[in-house]
Every structure is written in structure tokens, then in C-alpha cells.
């Protein structure tokens, strides 16, 4: 491989990883507060179409990105009201949110199929601002959860909402905020798909990336830095699997190594399973990092 190909490979991997990283960072914060929102895919799709439509109508990709962020928040607000205020089942509501988002985005997006927009402007090393925003946000989140007082409160609520409530922390309010943050990040991830990755709208264009983001959070055992490793690993596998095919057969000590493309396509999912099996062997580590109240409704007694 010459230098140009390596640089191009790295840049392409960053592009493929960014939507995963954005969505997974949001979901991580949501889950750390004890809320399991499986609506990531739906929120991403709504963010993608709202960001795209706004950009088409205003000509401003900045407004598009902001609109996507708000759209993601609006979706997560629906989820928060249903699960936090009305105590609906989180898993079922999250799934419903994904189905709703898929349908809603297809309906709104019908008239935008076949329209193109300018890709987000490049700011540094041929990458757009969202790529760097994703990285910065991740580090801020890592610092927030580990080093800040408010981060500690959020984790406390995720681990034992009853105890946090007894001390006097506003469990429901903080869970609302964490869920809204997750929605905003998913909206951004969607905007990245439609404004930077594909620069067009197509029905169901996230093609399962929201679910990979949910899996990534578990993959990273709820630790932000491992989220970064996971997102880039997945992005690398997703792009690398295509690059390997384009390069033709790989030579392994003089023998051509033929990798079936179906296997290559399945690699990201196989990697998830392998990692989940490996980390499951170390139960202590999962218990240490998994929010103990994940998915459990909180109802303040009295």
C-alpha cells in the first residue's frame, strides 16, 4: 500500500466510524443514567431527514445540523415522557420509537429522494467539523462522567435511583436531560449520514447503524474510551471489508487468501458477538460499569 492509499483508508474509516461514535456517545450517557433507549435507529433516521430537508430549503448545512439535533431531541422527548413520566416499558417504547422514526422519516423524506446537497465543508485534514465534534464530545463526556460532580450524580442515579432520590437528587429531571442528550447526539449522527456520509436522503439509509451503536455501548462496557476504540474498530471493519475486496486477493506467504464477501460483511456483527463473549467471562468488570438500574422504571414513593 502506498501512502496515498493509507491516508485515504484512514480518512474513510473515520467517516464510517463517526455516525457510530456520535450515536453511541449519546446512548452511553442515556444508559449511564439508567435509561435504556432502543430508539437510536429511529432517532437517527428522523435526524437525517430533518437535517437534510432543512439544508435543502435554507441552503445552510449549519442550520441543517442544528435542526437535526433538535429533531433527535424531540424524538427522545417523546420517549422520555412515555417512559419517565408515564412509566411505560422502556424496551417496548424504544422499539416503537425506532419503528415510528423509520416510518415518519420515510413519509417526510418521500419528496427528497433523488435530491443532492453539498457535502459539509471540510475544516481539517479533509474532514468536516462533525468528525472532530464527535471526538471532542466523547472526551468531554468521559471527563464529565468520571471527574465531575454532576457526572457522579448521573452515575449514582443510574446505579441506584432509590438511594439517589433519598439523598435528594432529582432522578426524573436528570434522566430527562440524559435522554435528551442521547436524542440530540442521535440526531447529529443522522445528520452526518445524510449531509456528510451520503449527501442525499434515502429511505432507511442508516441501514442498522443505530443498532450497532446500541451494541457498541455494551461492547465498551459503558466506558467512553472503549467506545472510541469500538467505534473506530467497527468503522474500520465496515470499511476495511470493502477495501479488502477492492484490493483483490490478499497474499499470505505466497498463497492467495480468499475471503468470502458474505463473511466479510458479517464481520462487524461477528466481532460484537466475540467481544460480548469475551467480556462476559469477566463478570466483575461488567457489574462494575453497567448501570445497575438500567431499564428499570423509577417511581418516587410517597
Amino acid at each position: 500500500m502506498d501512502q496515498v492509499i493509507i491516508v485515504s483508508f484512514v480518512l474513510s474509516v473515520m467517516t464510517a466510524s463517526t455516525p457510530l461514535l456520535l450515536a453511541a456517545t449519546g446512548e452511553l450517557v442515556t444508559e449511564k443514567s439508567g435509561v435504556l433507549n432502543l430508539g437510536v435507529e429511529g432517532m437517527m433516521l428522523v435526524g437525517a431527514i430533518v437535517g437534510f430537508a432543512t439544508t435543502v430549503h435554507t441552503g445552510s448545512s449549519l442550520l441543517g445540523v442544528l435542526a437535526a439535533l433538535l429533531a433527535g431531541m424531540a424524538m427522545s422527548l417523546i420517549f422520555a415522557i412515555l417512559t419517565l413520566t408515564f412509566l411505560a416499558n422502556q424496551v417496548a417504547t424504544g422499539l416503537a420509537l425506532t419503528i415510528f422514526g423509520t416510518g415518519l422519516s420515510a413519509l417526510v423524506g418521500a419528496s427528497y429522494v433523488g435530491t443532492a446537497v453539498e457535502a459539509l465543508p471540510r475544516v481539517l485534514f479533509g474532514q468536516d467539523a462533525l468528525v472532530y465534534l464527535a471526538l471532542v464530545t466523547l472526551f468531554v463526556v468521559a471527563w464529565f462522567l468520571r471527574r465531575s460532580h454532576r457526572g457522579l450524580v448521573l452515575r449514582a442515579i443510574g446505579d441506584s435511583h432509590d438511594a439517589a432520590h433519598a439523598i435528594g437528587y432529582p432522578v426524573i429531571l436528570i434522566r430527562y436531560l440524559a435522554t435528551l442528550f442521547g436524542g440530540a447526539m442521535c440526531g447529529l449522527a443522522g445528520a452526518y449520514m445524510s449531509l456528510a456520509y451520503a449527501t442525499s436522503w434515502a429511505e432507511n439509509m442508516t441501514a442498522g447503524r443505530g443498532w450497532i451503536a446500541v451494541a457498541l455501548v455494551v461492547f465498551a462496557t459503558w466506558r467512553p474510551i472503549w467506545l472510541l476504540v469500538g467505534a473506530y474498530l467497527f468503522g474500520g471493519i465496515m470499511y476495511g471489508s470493502l477495501a479488502i475486496q477492492a484490493a483483490g486477493a490478499i497474499n499470505l506467504f505466497g498463497y492467495p487468501l480468499v475471503v468470502p464477501s458474505q463473511l466479510v460483511s458479517a464481520l462487524p456483527y461477528l466481532a460484537t458477538i466475540v467481544v460480548l463473549v469475551v467480556i462476559s467471562r469477566d463478570r466483575a468488570r461488567i457489574r462494575l460499569n453497567a448501570p445497575a438500574c438500567l431499564g428499570r422504571p423509577f417511581h418516587a414513593a410517597g
Partner: peptide
């Protein structure tokens, strides 16, 4: 490049890059 899908804009675009 086989993407093993009829439709995945992300993967299709990445294939073109590769």
C-alpha cells in the same frame, strides 16, 4: 466489491471510495 445488499448508501459510497 460485493456489498451483499441491494441498498445501503453508506456501504455503497464506501465501496466506491475503496
Amino acid at each position: 466489491v460485493w456489498v451483499n445488499a441491494w441498498y445501503d448508501p453508506g456501504k455503497e459510497g464506501d465501496s466506491a471510495k475503496a
